[in-house]
C-alpha cells in the first residue's frame, strides 16, 4: 500500500510538472506537442550531470546541479520550438512532433557516442546512476520520499501565483486569449510567447529528469519517456489549464500509472488473473475516457495554435 502511494506521488509529480509546462505554453498561445522530446532532452541533461558530477560532492549540491542541467537542456531544446513557431510561424503540430522524434534520436546518438567512446564494446544507449539516485531519496519508515515530490508541489504553487497574481502571468494569458488586443495595449506578444515556451521547457526538463529517477536506476534512452509528455497534455486538458486542478488530475492519472507497477503486490488483484498488459494500458484507456467526457466543454486558451501575425486583423 505504501508502495502504491509512493509510486502514485512520484508519477503524479512527473505529470504535474510537465502539464504545468504545457499550461504555460498554451496560455501564451503556443501548443507544445514537443513536451515528450523536451522531457527526453531534460532527462539527458540530468543523467549526464549525474554521470560526470565529481564523486562525493554531497547530496544537496548534486541535486542542485542535476536540476540545473535538466532545466538548461530543457529550455535550450524548447527554444527550437520557439524559433520555428513564433518567429517563422511554422505549423505547431509538425514542429512539436519533429521535436519528439528528434529528442529520442538525438539522445540515443549522444549517449551511444559517449558509451562507445568510453568502451568500444559498449553500444548500448543506457546511462546508470545507481549511487547518484540515492541522493534524491529520503527513507521515512519504508516510504521513499523523493525530493521531486516537493519540487512538483512547489511548482504548482509557483505556477498558480505567477499566472494569477502577477502582471507577467496575466499578460501571458492575454496573449493566449486575444493576442491582437494584448498587442494594442503595448504587450509584446512575441516576447510573451517566447517566455511561455521557455517556461514550458523548464518544466518539461524537470519532469523528464524526475521521470527517469522515478523507479529505475538506469535509463535506456532509446525508449524515450513512454508517452508521458502526451499523458501530461491530457492531464492539462482534464485540469482545464488551471494549476490547482492540474495537480488533482495528475494524482488521478499517477494512481493508475502506479497501479501497473505494483499490482502484483495486492493479492486480490493478482487473484483476478488479469494479464500485465491490461494494467499497462490502463492509464491510456482512462485518459481517453476522461478526455471524451471533459473535452466538450474545455476552456482552452482561444488563440492557441494560431501563429501571431502583427499585420493580421
Amino acid at each position: 500500500m505504501l508502495l502504491l502511494i509512493q509510486y502514485t506521488l512520484i508519477f503524479a509529480s512527473v505529470l504535474a510538472l510537465v502539464a504545468l509546462g504545457g499550461c504555460f505554453a498554451e496560455h501564451s498561445g503556443v501548443i507544445n506537442l514537443g513536451l515528450e522530446g523536451i522531457m527526453v532532452i531534460g532527462a539527458l541533461g540530468g543523467a549526464l550531470m549525474m554521470r560526470y558530477a565529481p564523486d562525493g560532492i554531497g547530496a544537496f549540491p548534486l541535486i542542485m546541479l542535476v536540476i540545473i542541467a535538466a532545466i538548461v537542456f530543457g529550455v535550450f531544446y524548447s527554444s527550437l520550438l520557439g524559433v520555428a513557431c513564433i518567429n517563422f510561424k511554422a505549423n505547431q503540430t509538425i514542429v512539436g512532433t519533429a521535436l519528439n522524434m528528434l529528442g529520442t534520436a538525438a539522445a540515443t546518438v549522444i549517449v551511444k557516442a559517449i558509451n562507445t567512446a568510453a568502451n568500444p564494446d559498449d553500444v548500448s544507449s543506457t546511462i546508470q546512476y545507481v549511487d547518484e539516485k540515492k541522493s534524491f531519496l529520503v527513507n521515512i519508515g519504508g516510504f521513499e520520499f523523493n525530493w521531486f515530490m516537493l519540487i512538483a508541489a512547489l511548482g504548482v504553487v509557483a505556477a498558480y501565483v505567477i499566472l494569477y497574481k502577477t502582471k507577467f502571468g496575466l499578460r501571458l494569458m492575454a496573449c493566449g486569449e486575444h493576442p491582437q488586443a494584448a498587442d494594442s495595449v503595448g504587450i509584446n506578444v512575441y516576447k510573451m510567447r517566447w517566455a511561455g515556451v521557455l517556461i514550458s521547457g523548464l518544466f518539461g526538463g524537470l519532469g523528464g529528469i524526475c521521470y527517469i529517477l522515478s523507479g529505475v536506476s538506469e535509463w535506456k534512452f532509446e525508449n524515450g519517456v513512454a508517452g508521458f509528455g502526451f499523458l501530461a497534455l491530457a492531464v492539462m486538458i482534464f485540469g482545464q489549464w488551471k494549476p490547482t486542478r492540474i495537480a488533482m488530475a495528475a494524482l488521478i492519472f499517477g494512481f493508475f500509472r502506479a497501479l501497473s507497477n505494483v499490482f502484483f503486490g495486492f493479492p486480490f488483484l493478482v487473484a483476478l488473473n488479469i494479464p500485465g498488459s491490461i494494467y499497462n494500458m490502463m492509464p491510456y484507456v482512462i485518459c481517453l475516457i476522461v478526455l471524451a467526457f471533459t473535452s466538450k466543454k474545455s476552456r482552452a486558451p482561444k488563440a492557441e495554435g494560431i501563429p501571431y501575425d502583427k499585420g493580421q486583423r
Binding site: L80, A84, C85, F88, K89, A90, N91, I94, V95, T97, A98, L99, M101, L102, T104, A105, A106, T108, V109, K112, A113, T116, P120, V123, S125, E222
Partner: peptide, 26 residues
C-alpha cells in the same frame, strides 16, 4: 562503422528533416 557511430544517425536525420519541413511555408 558501429565501433564508432550508431545506426540511429539516420533517425536523427529524418527527425531533422521533419523539423525543417516546418519551415517549408517560410
Amino acid at each position: 562503422d558501429k565501433t564508432v557511430y550508431c545506426s540511429q544517425i539516420s533517425d536523427l536525420i529524418s527527425a531533422i528533416i521533419i523539423y525543417l519541413c516546418g519551415f517549408v511555408f517560410f
